[in-house]
Write a protein that binds this DNA or RNA. Sequence first.
DNA 1: CATATTAGGAAACAATCGTTTCCGATATCT
DNA 2: AGATATCGGAAACGATTGTTTCCTAATATG
Lengths: 216, 216
Amino acid sequence: METIIPYYPAMQKTARKSRSVVRPPGRPREFDMDTALDRAVRVFSERGYHATSIGDLTAAMRLATGSVYKAFRDKHAVFLAAFERYVVLRQEQTRRAAAQGGTGRERLRNLLLSYVEHSQGSEGRRGCLVVGSAVELSAVDPVVAALVSARLETNEGFIAGLIREGQADGSIPRHVAADDTARLMICITQGLRVVGKARLSLDGKRLVAVAMKLLA
Amino acid sequence: METIIPYYPAMQKTARKSRSVVRPPGRPREFDMDTALDRAVRVFSERGYHATSIGDLTAAMRLATGSVYKAFRDKHAVFLAAFERYVVLRQEQTRRAAAQGGTGRERLRNLLLSYVEHSQGSEGRRGCLVVGSAVELSAVDPVVAALVSARLETNEGFIAGLIREGQADGSIPRHVAADDTARLMICITQGLRVVGKARLSLDGKRLVAVAMKLLA
DNA sequence: CATATTAGGAAACAATCGTTTCCGATATCT
DNA sequence: AGATATCGGAAACGATTGTTTCCTAATATG
C-alpha cells in the first residue's frame, strides 16, 4: 500500500507573512522557484513519479537537498507543485494556439494541430504530465486523481465551447453533438500523447484532417 | 539512472529440456504459471512497474519469494512475461469482438465498442498494461519500448485491415484514408484507457457513434 | 562593520527496495 | 518405503529510497 500525503506544498519562498513583522534581513543567492519547477516538470514527465529519486530531482532543479526540503514538505508536494505549474503553462499554450482562428472550426483545428505537435519529437518523448499522472497515480493517489479529472473536464469543456462557437458562427453544423464529440476529442488528445511517447511518427496535417470529419 | 536488464525470463516450469535425460522424479504442489501471470498483470496494470514491490507481486501471484525468483531472473523478467501474457489475452478478446460482424464497418464498430467497455468500470480503473508501459517505461526501458511500439503497430495494422475489408464489401467509402484513419483510431483507443483510468464516465454507444463518422 | 537569515552541501537517519540463501514440507518416481 | 527434486517461507543481504540534521558560505539590513 501507498502512504498518501494529501497536502499542498508549503513554499517558504513567498511565505513572508507580513513584511512589517517578519523582515528579510539577509538573503543569499537569488532563487527562482518557477524555473526550478519547470525543470522538475521535465524529470517527472520523462521518468514518472516513482522512478524519479530526490537525487534526480535536485540535479534537475539545480537545488540542494536541503533547499528542496525547505521549500516543500516532501517529494509528493514537489510533484503537486510541478503538476500545477505544468497545467498553467500548457493551458496557456493551448488557448493561445486556439485563439488564432477566425471561426470556431478553425480554432478547433488549431487546438488539435497544437496537440499533435506537442506529442512529437523531444517533447513527445518526454511525455505529458497529466497523462503520466492519470496512468501512474490515479489508482492510488486520490489527490492526484482529482487534479487529473479536473484537468480533463476543463479541457473537455473548453473543446465543447469551441464547438458551440463554431455552431454559432456557422462553421460547424448544428447537428454535431457538442458534448459527445468533445469527450471523444479528449480521448484523441490523450491518446496522441501516449502514441507520441511510444515514438510513433505523427503527421499533423493528415491526422487532423481525418479528425475534423467528426465535425461534419 | 535506471539499470535496464534487457533479457527475457528463464521460466523453469516448462524448461525440462529432454525428458529422457533430465527426468522429473518428484514434484510438489501444482504450479500454474499462466494464472499466476494473470494476477501479476492485475497488479502491474493498477500500480505500474515501479510502485509494485516484490511483496505486492508475491501476494498477488500467491507465490513465495523464492518461487518467483526460481521461475524468473528478476522483477523485470516477471514484468516482461506479464506483459506478453496480457498482450496475448487482449488480442484474443479484441479479435473475437471484431469477428462477430458481417461487414468491415460492423467489425470496426464492435472493436471500438469493446475498447470502450474495457476502459470502464473496474477494468478501466485497473488500466491497460500497454498504455501504462508506454507512459511509465518507454522513455527509460528500450526493451519495453520496442514491445509497446510493436503492439501499437500490430493493432494499427489490424484496424487498417478492417477498413480495407469494409471498402471491399462496400460498407466503407473508398475515399477513406485507411492508414491515417487507423492511426487516429489507435489514438482514440489509447486515449480511452487514459480517460477511463481517470474515472470519467464513457457512454459506449454515443462515443462510438461519433467515432464512426471517421468512416464517412 | 556586525548581525541575522537564508541556500548549499554533506553526512547520517530509518525504512524499504530487490535479491540471495537456506531449510523444512511436500509430492512423485524407483 | 525410500530417494529425490521442487515449492513455500522466512531470514538476511547490500543497495537505494525519502527524509532530517547540522554546519558553512553568502548576503541584505541595521
